[in-house]
Structures are given as C-alpha cells and as structure tokens.
Design a protein around this nucleic acid. Structure first.
Length: 855
RNA sequence: GCGGGCGUGGCGGAACUGGUAGACGCGCUGGAUUUAGGUUCCAGUGGGAGAAAUCCCGUGAAGGUUCGAGUCCUUUCGCCCGCACCA
C-alpha cells in the first residue's frame, strides 16, 4: 500500500500555476455569485473594516494598492473567523483636480470624474478586493450630497454653522479660501501656493465648541497611533492661563478710563514685569486709537507692510519684529503703573484676546521687541543663586539698568520686584501663577481662562465642483436655509468651465426666490469643502440606499464604530479631526450612538521607489500596480506588499522582493498539490501518525496558532512568515513522506495552508480549494482551522543552560520535566564548567532555560 | 522652542507580557540539475579566533536595576515626522 502511494507521488504531475487564468476566472465567479455582499446575521459579532476612500484623480497607485490590500486581508480574515463583515468602498469625488482637468481638457468635471472612477474600480476588481460593490457610492451623487446639505442645515439650526467676515487664507492659484488645516507649512495643501490674507464673508462650522471633547476623547482612542493623537492634541492646542484686564489710560497717559483691554497669558506670575502692551496690526481698536493722531501714519505703514508679508516669509526670515507706538498707555492692574501701548506684527489677531502683555524678562519675543525699541526690561524672575536675587528680593520698584542679558530669563525661577509675591516660585502652573491669578480674581480684574489654538472650520469654497451650500440670501430676510423638501440643491452640470463659467456668475443657478418672503433672492454660490463630504461617508455605507434619511439609526447602530480604519498619515489632522467632530455633532442630534467613529486606526506607511524617494509623476519613478499584476498576478502583488514590511512602516519598492514572493507562492502551490493529491479528508489521529507525520502535525499546530495571533495583531509580515515556515516544513515532509497512516494529516495540512493564506492570496487559495482539495463553495467562507496548543508541544525540548546569565550549554529534556529534573539535567550538562565553583542560586524557567549562579 | 516616533547582520525585518538575539525573506557563497544563462533543488551565511569541539565580542553610546536587558530606568548621541512669533 505504501509503495502504491509513493509510486503515485512520483508520477503525479502538479498543474502549472497560471496566475492570470486563475485570477480572471475567480474574479468573474465571485462577481456572478455576489460573494462579497455584506452579511446580515445579527447572531454574529460584527466587524467594520474600512479603507479611506480615494479621490479619483486617475488610476490607483501603489499607495492605494497597499492601503486596500491591508484592509482586504483584515476583512477576509475577519469573515473567516466568524464575523459579520462590512467592507465597503466608494469615491471622494468632489474637488478641485476634476475642475482643473475639465478646464484644461474642455470637458465636464463629472465626466472626467466618472471615467477615473470606472478605471479605479476596474483595478480594484483586478486586485481581488472583497468590496460589497452594491454599497458603492460617490460623493458627487445627488443621492449622497443631498444629505450633506441636510446636515449643514441641521447644524445651521443649532448654531453650529454660521457666516462671518474675517481675515482668511485665499489661495490665488486655486482661487478659493482655505481652512486653517489646509494651510500646511504656510502653503496651500493642494497646490503649494502661498495664500493671501483677505477679509471675506465666509461660512464656518463651529468645531471650537467641541475642542475640549475632541481633546479629552483622544485618551479613549487606545487603538490609535500615538503620533496621530499627538498631532491632534497639538492642533487643538489647549492652554490654561488667565485673562487680565488693563485699563486704558486717558490721554494724559496716567488716569485710568472706563475702557479695558484684556490680554490672555499663561504667565500671570510675570505681571510685575509687564513694561508694555501689544496689539496686532489688524486690530480695530489700534486703528481707532491712532486715528487722527501723529502716530497714525506709522501705524498705517506697519499695517500695510504686514499684510504684504506672507506667513511663509514671516517664518522664513530672521523673524524680526516690527512695531509702532500708539501714543496711548494702559494701566497695569497690579502695580497701577502705566505701560505704553504698541502695535506689532508678532501678535496674532485671532489667538487669545488679540492683545499681549509684554514681559521682556520672561519671554524671548517680548525681550527681542523691547531691545529693538528700547523699552524697559524690568527683572522680575531669577534663580536663587543669581546675585540679582539677593539685590532685588527685598527692594521695590528698583530700576535696573545694569543687567547684561542677551536673552530673556529662564522660564522657571523665583519672583523678585513683585510686591507681596516676591520669593514665590514662578513658571508655568507654578505657585506664583496661582497666587497672582487669585489676587486678580479677588480684585475683579482677571479670571482663569482656557484657550484653544483650534479655530472654527472654514468650509466655504469659491469653486464649482463641490456640494452647494444650501442657503439663500434674501435682502429682506437675511440668510435663510433652502427648505428641506427642496433638497438637494442640484449642482448644474452644464457649465462651460473651459469658457470661464463659474457658479457665482451662472444665473440659472443663483436666481431664486426667498423661501420666507417669496421675493427674488440669491442662492449662495459657494460650495462646501470636500472634507465635509468625507466627514460622514463611513456612516452612509451602513445604509447607502436610504432615500428618507442619511442613514437609519438601526443600521448605524449595527455597524458603527468602524473597527479598523486604514489610510495615510496625511489625514492625521484634516479628515480624522473633522470626522470626529461630525460624529459628535450627529450624536448630539440623536442620530448616532457612538462618541468616536474610528475604533482602531492604522496609518499605513508609504511606498517609495528603490532609492527611497517618494514616487511621483514628475520624477518619473512611479511603479504602477499593473507592472506587477501583469507578469506575476494580483496574489503575488498582495503577498509582496504585506510581507516586505509591517503595515505602518514605509518601504522602498524592491523588484527582488516581489520575485521572492512569487517564488514562495509557486512553491506553496506545489506543496499543497502534492499533499492534497496524496491525502484523504478525515480526522487526524495524532497517536497513529508516522514519526515525520507527528513532527509535521506539531508544527502545524504551533505555526497555525502563531499565524492567527499575528493576523490578530495586524502583523501580516510575520503571519506570512509563519505560513512560510509551515510550507518549508511541509516541503521537507513531501520529500520524505509517511505512509497511509498520514493521509488525513496530508490533506489537513494542505487545507490549512490554503486557508491561512486565503486572506492574502485569495485567487490562489480559491483555485487550490476547489482543484486540489476538491471542495465546493468558497475558501472565503471556509471557517478558520482550529489549532491545539497542546498538540504543538513536543515530548522533548532543548533548553539553554546559563551560568550567571550567559549561555554555556544546551540540554534535551522531557517537555514535562519537573523543576528539580531540569536543574539536575542542567548541572550535569555544564558540570565541567561548574567545577571548583560554589552554586549560589539556580533559576529555572520551564521550557526555556536554567540559570546557575555560581562563583 | 513644544510634541511624537525611531536607532538590531550587506538589505527588508523577527524577538507579543525581561528568559537561548538575528525567525522569515532578499542578497551572497558553495554544490546538484542544465551545452550555457535562467529556473529549480540541497547546504552555508552577525563579527573575530580556531582544523574542530569551543571561546570571545555583539541590538547607536555610557551608566543603573536584575540571577538574566534589544526589551525596564537615567544620561547622552544620531535620524525621521508634526506644530510653531499661540503670549
């Protein structure tokens, strides 16, 4: 009988691995059978796996391929592990590139967009991604953007959407305003132009209402990478301090008036050191105070100069500060002394109160400014070992002119010349801060204040290809929302962008009547930032065909939050912060029950070229996915991408690594065929296996468990390496197989290899599942194999014998040896080296090592 | 300046809660198959010494805790990323 088996194995010819034929065949079958339709079995636990949807600017690139391969492996694995899986895909279809392409090629933005989408979908299908295409939508579909408009109106009703006039970032190239988040390193996030400051009437969403919660809830996001959370904390920029009221002095420069100017500071402890106050050039108050005075001309010059200097130049130059005196004074509330009121370009209008108390001793910027304009630098903080401390600690109001500093004092130190507070320890959150804030509050001229760096989200864009803001401006009634039964405000698709048509000048769009008074009125022609569209798309996937509401509460309750969200780090602030905000707003509207939309976040690393440079069309170093799919197939591509590095790390494209992945897939193909052809489906009885069969069985269980744990951790590279080890072991077995007694084992190992690799190489697995294993149905629906940790243990293990922590030998012992037996065996193994030494202590770690402490 | 992360062979990377550092792969070396190249298969591959058993050194550097440290603590050097005149 055994002879027969061997003879068969010898003559059996393994079919060739033809990736192209296999992949096209199964892709068609999967589509015909709707294999990836979302499960709806409430008895099962759910898993929502989502990859950040793409902007359809052309075909998919390597970054997309990596992103979606990671998500697909997660989704497939979850399904096989018994989860009800939601794994959708769609397109973030509004945006400037489509509009620019339409202008350039004299076509329509919609047409260009849909062509790109068609191509991208084709590539997604070619990659074998398991999306539920029935749930696919594009944000430019009226059925989708309708609800974005509806949500805007709900926010408007709640006071979370508003219109305001203020200095905004205007990109001269994109011809639209930008949100703060979209000005990256002082430049437009999309085109790199330096935005201008313009004073415009724009629409905002009140994200600042949620600043504290957005910050606090970051602590609950244990499944998010630290750097993303850090970036968001940074961006929200919470800072604890105090507001302090200074009275504006009368024209005599001494007598306090009724007008106050309030500053924000985190360093109330340095109040005694305030020698001037600064307003920003844009300040309306400053303009008013200098109007008609001798100081006005200089002020206007500074204001004009500041407007001209871009934010990039402001950072790039040596940061020289410019200022002018206003001719007026303010009164320091704690000393009663007058301080000159200046205007300077280093103060920001929109942070804090837009006014700063100048403390040159404690702040480098104030110090630089004081030096340049010869303002006093009163010492109010120093170290106890500084001779200055002894000189000043008991004196009051000493004018010190002989200090020889070239920079402000260290942030922490002891107060001097600070009245009753002299001697207290000063610094951020110091006793001195608390004491002086207490004094201010008691005297009614100050109060604690929490300040955020985060500004409201500017969402209006002066562009065509976006979701129209559903508002109407009526001269009589003001801004009124479009009635909800008239939604969506349809974006007209017959504009001739090539000829310069814009929404603002397109009468058929903007001409309307006021829904309140019925008189002629004008539609708002701004569209919404595309990030509004991507702020809730993950909710729509839960219920994509709903035409009564954006989604049903039940559907969202079933699937949210997203369990695994995968995408690029470039959205660390923009999309991920906006989506968190949007979710919280919808929660407060009673539409969703979750506080946070994304439970686990994975920011995949970049795919760079062979030299470590980012791939780009202009550099000509782009490796398109097709260059791998065509010669090797999608499965090799997927395997290579996941194996070469952990998902969150950048990696350099390496053709050798791809060839290696292809080598493995072919080797595994052969091994599976040989095992399966010679195996029989049935229960493995470990006790009856051949010797080499027992070894293989043990390894199967051990590696199966390791592989599963690695999948759970999202460590695909090591999950694959476990599969490789198993294939290596099986390959060794095939070269010297056991007999009939191993038939069930052979089949089982073949089956498990196919199953364990199914999330990564789905076509390869599906083909073997049917052709080699002779099974019906789909490998995608195959339950994950069960492994037994006990079966992974061998009877004997090799343990290390250490002397004082250094490995000095190895010894084979029974796996279930007692500590005493281990110790005895270890001592024997290194007896020679223990000679003449005294054993102080022996540490026994069963299954691993024995450490003998001997001197 | 503030915040986050990372330093392991020739390379990508393993080592999950301290327990035999370098799994797995790439590359390289030798061998088999082949007319040859390629493919495939077998063996080897951190550095140093040695014929070998074996020994010494090794996770950016220096200290520390521990029977034992890539892993924990302190200091330090280097690199990457984010924010930045935010008061």
């Amino acid at each position: 009988m055994a002879e027969d088996t061997e003879a068969q194995a010898g003559t059996f010819e393994v079919p060739e691995y033809d990736a192209q034929a296999i992949e096209t065949k199964w892709q068609k079958t999967w589509e015909d059978e709707e294999l990836y339709k979302t499960d709806t079995d409430p008895a099962k636990p759910k898993k929502y796996v989502l990859e950040m949807f793409p902007y359809p600017s052309g075909d998919l690139h390597m970054g997309h391929a990596r992103n979606y391969t990671i998500g697909d492996a997660m989704a497939r694995q979850a399904r096989m592990r018994g989860y009800d899986v939601l794994h959708p895909m769609g397109f973030d279809a509004f945006g400037l590139p489509a509009e620019n392409a339409a202008i350039k090629h004299n076509t329509q933005a919609a047409k260009w967009t849909h062509q790109n989408i068609a191509q991208a979908v084709k590539t997604m299908k070619r990659m074998g991604f398991s999306y539920d295409y029935d749930r696919m939508f594009n944000t430019c579909d009226p059925e989708y953007y309708r609800w974005g408009q509806w949500m805007f109106i709900q926010m408007w009703k709640r006071g979370l959407a508003y219109r305001a006039t203020s200095p905004v970032n205007w990109c001269p190239t994109c011809k639209t305003v930008l949100a703060n988040e979209q000005v990256v390193e002082g430049r437009c996030w999309r085109c790199g132009s330096v935005p201008e400051k313009r004073n415009l009437s724009q629409w905002y969403l009140k994200i600042t209402d949620y600043a504290q919660e957005l910050l606090d809830d970051l602590d609950t996001l244990t499944g998010w990478p630290e750097n993303v959370k850090a970036q968001q904390r940074n961006w929200i920029g919470r800072s604890e301090g105090a507001e302090i009221d200074f009275k504006l002095a009368d024209l005599d420069g001494v007598t306090p008036t009724d007008r106050t100017i309030t500053v924000f500071t985190t360093r109330a402890d340095t109040l005694f050191g305030t020698s001037f106050m600064v307003l920003p050039p844009e300040s309306a108050l400053a303009a008013e105070l200098v109007a008609g005075t001798q100081y006005e001309a200089d002020y206007l010059k500074l204001k004009a100069a500041t407007e001209k200097v871009s934010s990039v130049d402001r950072q790039g130059s040596a940061r020289e500060k410019h200022g002018v005196f206003t001719g007026r004074y303010v009164v320091n509330p704690i000393t009663g002394k007058p301080c000159p009121l200046w205007v300077a370009d280093y103060v920001l209008l929109d942070y804090g109160t837009g006014a700063v108390m100048g403390v040159p001793c404690g702040d480098q910027r104030d110090f630089d400014f004081a030096r340049k304009y010869h303002l006093p630098i009163p010492p109010i903080i120093c170290q106890k070992d500084d001779p200055l401390y002894d000189r000043l600690k008991d004196e009051r109001d000493l004018v010190v002119t002989d200090v020889d500093w070239d920079q402000a004092m260290a942030a922490e130190g002891y107060l001097v010349q600070s009245g009753e507070f002299t001697g207290l320890l000063g610094g951020k959150h110091s006793p001195a801060v608390a004491a002086i804030e207490g004094w201010l509050q008691e005297h009614g001229c100050g109060r604690p204040k929490v300040q955020f760096r985060l500004r409201d989200w500017l969402i209006s864009r002066q562009r065509y290809w976006g979701n129209p803001i559903p508002m109407i401006h009526c001269d009589a009634c003001g801004d009124v929302p479009v009635p909800e039964d008239q939604l969506p405000v349809m974006l007209p698709e017959d504009l001739d962008l090539g000829a310069g048509d814009t929404l603002a000048e397109y009468a058929p769009f903007y001409e309307t009547t006021c829904p309140v008074c019925g008189r002629p009125a004008k539609r708002i022609t701004d569209t919404m930032d595309t990030f509004t569209c991507s702020s809730w798309y993950y909710l729509r996937y839960c219920d994509p065909h709903n035409d009564q509401a954006p989604f049903s509460k039940e559907a969202v309750a079933r699937w949210m939050p997203v369990d695994n969200y995968i995408g690029g780090i470039e959205h660390a602030i923009l999309h991920l912060l906006y989506s968190r905000f949007w979710t919280k707003v919808l929660r407060d509207m009673g539409m969703v029950d979750v506080d946070e939309p994304f439970k686990n976040l994975l920011c995949q690393g970049m795919v760079k070229d062979e030299n470590g440079d980012t791939m780009s069309k202009s550099k000509g170093n782009v490796v398109p996915p097709s260059s791998v799919i065509e010669p090797y197939g999608a499965d090799t591509m997927r395997l290579a991408i996941l194996f070469v590095a952990p998902p969150e790390k950048d990696f350099n494209w390496d053709p050798e690594a791809v060839a290696g992945a292809n080598r493995f897939i072919k080797r595994a193909w052969r091994v599976v065929w040989l095992l399966a052809h010679d195996g029989v489906r049935g229960e493995v009885v470990p006790a009856e296996l051949s010797k080499q069969g027992k070894d293989l069985w043990r390894q199967l269980n051990g590696l199966g468990i390791k592989c599963m744990q690695d999948y759970d951790r999202g460590q695909f590279n090591t999950a694959i390496s476990a599969c490789m080890e198993l294939v290596n072991a099986a390959s060794g077995y095939v070269n010297a197989p056991g007999g009939e007694e191993d038939a069930a084992l052979r089949w089982r190992v073949a089956h498990d290899i196919v199953t364990m690799l199914a999330p990564i190489c789905p076509h390869w697995s599906e083909e073997l599942f049917h052709a080699a294993l002779g099974l019906a149905g789909s490998a995608y629906n195959e339950p994950w194999p069960e492994f037994d940790a006990d079966e992974a243990k061998s009877d004997e293990v090799e343990i290390a014998v250490q002397i004082k922590g250094k490995v000095r030998g190895h010894v084979m012992v029974a796996a279930d040896a007692s500590k005493e037996e281990l110790e005895a065996a270890a001592k024997e193994a290194v007896a020679a080296q223990l000679e003449g030494k005294t054993i102080k202590k022996v540490i026994v770690v069963p299954g691993r090592l024995v450490n003998i402490v001997a001197i």
